[in-house]
C-alpha cells in the first residue's frame, strides 16, 4: 500500500529552481496495477525514485504499508528497497558478471536469506518468468526480452509489496514488449501490486488504472480516456 500525500520535490539546476513534483497525491492499493504516463521531463522518474525510496521528498508524507518512511534511517531504507520494492528498469540493470541465477539471488543475499531457501525461491522466481532452463546463462548470452525476464524475476523474488517498473519495455521490440506486458499482467493476476511508468499511451492503457503526469502534477485518467480533476487520486 502506497500513500503519497502532498509530495513536493524541487531541484536546483543551473541556478534555477525546477519543481519536479508539485503537491502530488497518489494512493496505490495492495493488489492494484497502476500505470503512470507522462512525457520526458514531466517528473515521472522523480516520482518513481521517491516511491522506490531512492530519493526523499522535500515536502509531504510518503507512507509505505502504513509507515511514514521519513522515520527510517538510510540502513532501514536499504532494507525496505530490498524487501518491499521490486525494481524493473528500462536498461534491465543486471550485473553482467553474474549469471541469471546469481542476479536473482543477490537481493536475497542482502536480506540474509539462507542458502537453502535462496535456492528454492530463485528457482521459483525464474520459473515464473519462464526462464527455469536458462538460469546459468550470463546476461550477454540472453536476448533483451530474456534479460528483462531475469530482471522481473529479481524484482519478484523478494515477494515485494510493489513492483516498480520504469519503462520496462523501452528497450524491447514490439513482440517482446507484448510478452513482458503479458507477464506483468499475469503477476498482477497472482496478486502483485504494480506501478508501471511509461511514456507510451498504448502500454499505459493496458493497466486497469492510469495516472497522467505533466509538469510535476498528477491527474487521474478515467477508463474511458477523459481526464479527472487535477491532483486527484488521493
Amino acid at each position: 500500500m502506497i500513500e503519497l500525500e502532498d509530495i513536493q520535490k524541487r531541484y536546483v539546476l543551473g541556478g534555477e529552481t525546477v519543481t519536479a513534483l508539485d503537491h502530488v497525491n497518489l494512493t496505490v492499493g495492495d493488489h492494484e496495477y497502476v500505470s503512470i504516463i507522462g512525457p520526458s521531463g514531466s517528473g515521472k522518474s522523480t516520482l518513481m525514485n521517491i516511491i522506490g525510496c531512492l530519493d526523499a521528498a522535500d515536502g509531504g508524507v510518503y507512507r509505505l504499508d502504513g509507515v511514514d518512511i521519513a522515520r527510517y534511517s538510510q540502513r532501514q531504507l536499504a532494507a525496505i528497497r530490498g524487501r518491499k520494492i521490486g525494481f524493473v528498469f528500462q536498461q534491465f540493470n543486471l550485473l553482467q558478471k553474474l549469471t541469471a541465477y546469481e542476479n536473482v539471488e543477490l537481493p536475497l543475499i542482502y536480506q540474509g536469506v539462507s542458502e537453502k531457501e535462496r535456492r528454492v525461491r530463485v528457482g521459483e522466481a525464474l520459473s515464473r518468468v519462464g526462464l527455469g532452463q536458462r538460469m546459468h546463462h550470463r546476461p550477454n548470452q540472453l536476448s533483451g526480452g530474456q534479460q528483462q525476464r531475469v530482471a522481473v524475476a529479481r524484482a519478484v523474488v523478494t515477494r515485494p509489496s510493489i513492483i516498480l517498473a520504469d519503462e520496462p519495455t523501452g528497450n524491447l521490440d514490439s513482440k517482446t514488449t507484448v510478452e513482458i506486458m503479458d507477464m506483468l499482467e499475469e503477476l498482477h493476476a497472482q496478486g502483485n501490486a504494480i506501478v508501471l511508468i511509461t511514456h507510451n499511451p498504448e502500454i499505459a492503457a493496458r493497466a486497469p488504472r492510469c495516472v497522467h503526469i505533466r509538469d510535476g502534477r498528477l491527474s487521474e485518467v478515467e477508463p474511458g480516456g477523459s481526464r479527472a480533476v487535477e491532483g486527484g487520486g488521493a
Binding site: 531512492l54 540502513r75 529479481r154 523478494t158
Partner: peptide, 16 residues
C-alpha cells in the same frame, strides 16, 4: 558505479 547503483536499488545497505 552503475553496479553499485543496482546493488543499492535492490537493497544493499551501505555496509555491504
Amino acid at each position: 558505479t552503475r553496479e553499485i547503483g543496482i546493488r543499492k536499488a535492490i537493497g544493499a545497505p551501505r555496509s555491504a
